[in-house]
């Protein structure tokens, strides 16, 4: 297991990495990330049904998301409250930790519109969410293999204006919805759930 090797190093350097500015008081990336596991799974591999997996996620995306939760720019039920306990340095450390983990594929069933969803993904989403939204290099959130409930919440929030992920995504999603309706959203969710 990857983490076994990395932690040995972390324990050696953890105590040297103290930063007085850090709200969490200079804890290592491993120590910080372990506190997430009660909701997001061991090493970020969530057992669902709604908490997103963080394992293998883009470090940049994760840290940016946490900054947005902290500032209130991005709304959530609970993440906004927890994000206020950390600073930028902590977010970067968490991002680096989770990016190193193997991406977790949710064990869930997919509806029957995955084929249609694949076409919609390629047309509307693929430009920013590469490889079915499973490539951390794209610095965007995980889509394929992510828990459906979570992705559905995000799409709802973009549609009703609760979440502003940037003009490009809002425009693309609304354009898709205008043409395909709610069935289009379901097709996308089916496609992402079908990725194994």
């Amino acid at each position: 297991m990857k983490h076994v090797k990395t932690l040995g190093t972390a324990l050696i350097f953890g105590s040297l990495a103290f930063s007085g500015a850090s709200l969490a008081g200079g804890a290592s990336g491993e120590a910080l990330s372990y506190t997430c596991a009660g909701c997001h799974g061991t090493n970020g591999a969530s057992t669902g049904p709604a908490s997103p997996s963080l394992a293998g996620m883009s470090a940049v995306y994760l840290a940016d998301s946490m900054r947005a939760f902290k500032s209130g720019e991005r709304e959530s039920t609970i993440m906004m409250r927890i994000a206020k306990g950390y600073d930028d340095d902590d977010f970067d450390k968490m991002g680096a930790f989770f990016e190193k983990q193997t991406m977790h594929i949710a064990d869930q069933s997919a509806g029957g519109m995955a084929g249609k969803g694949e076409k919609l993904h390629e047309k509307y989403c693929d430009k920013c969410h590469a490889e079915s939204g499973m490539d951390p290099e794209d610095e965007a959130g995980q889509l394929g293999g992510q828990w459906t409930a979570y992705t559905e919440y995000q799409l709802q929030d973009v549609m009703d204006g609760t979440r502003d992920p940037g003009k490009k995504m809002t425009k693309a999603l609304k354009k898709m919805h205008k043409k395909e309706g709610d069935a289009g959203i379901q097709a996308l969710l089916d496609y992402y759930a079908s990725k194994k």
């Binding site: 009660g38 061991t42 908490s51 039920t77």
Partner: peptide, 21 residues
């Protein structure tokens, strides 16, 4: 209502993940 329904789903996620963790 929307947030409260999600909190229930996140509670169940908490439950499954903390058992597994």
């Amino acid at each position: 209502a929307k947030a409260r329904a999600r909190e229930q789903q996140y509670a169940y996620s908490w439950f499954e993940n903390i058992k597994a963790d």
